[in-house]
Computed example of a mutant assay.
Amino acid sequence: MGKFRYSAALLWLTLLISIAPVSASAAPVVIKAQTVNASITFDGINLQPPSGQYIFIYNNSTYVPLRFISYALQKSVSWDAKNVKVTVAEPNSRELTAIKEYLMNTSNLKTSTGITKTVALQRVNASYIFNGSVKSIPQGLSSYILNGTLYVPLRFLSEAAGTSLKWDQKTKSITAFTSAYKAQNPDVTTSSNEDSTSGSKTEPSTPSPAPSAQAGAGASGSGAVSKPTYEQITSETEAKLTSLQSQAKSVLMGLAMEYLNAKDDKAKAAILSKGEQQLSSFTSSFNSIISDAESKLKANGYDTAIIDQYRSAFESQVNSGLELVKGMKG
Rank of each mutant, 00 (worst) to 15 (best):
S291Q: 10
W79K: 05
S208R: 05
M328D: 01
K326Q: 11
A269L: 13
A9Y: 13
S316Y: 05
L154R: 08
R311V: 11
N46L: 07
L15V: 01
T106S: 09
T237M: 12
Q247K: 15
Y58E: 07
I19W: 00
P211M: 03
K82M: 10
Y259V: 04
G330V: 12
S18A: 14
L154I: 11
V22F: 12
T113G: 08
Q214H: 14
A256P: 00
S192P: 09
P138K: 06
G44M: 00
G140F: 02
T113E: 15
K326W: 04
Q122W: 07
S76A: 14
K100I: 10
R311C: 03
E238L: 05
Q278A: 11
I129C: 01
A89C: 05
Y310Q: 06
K3Y: 06
E159P: 02
K274R: 15
A210D: 13
N46T: 11
T35M: 02
Y151Q: 08
T62N: 05
I289D: 01
T111H: 15
I99M: 09
S39G: 12
S25T: 04
E159S: 10
A120E: 15
R94K: 13
L322C: 02
A248E: 00
L157M: 10
S222Q: 12
S173L: 01
A20T: 06
I306V: 11
N185A: 10
G321T: 00
S312K: 11
Y302G: 09
P207S: 04
K268G: 10
P49W: 02
A120C: 09
V64R: 05
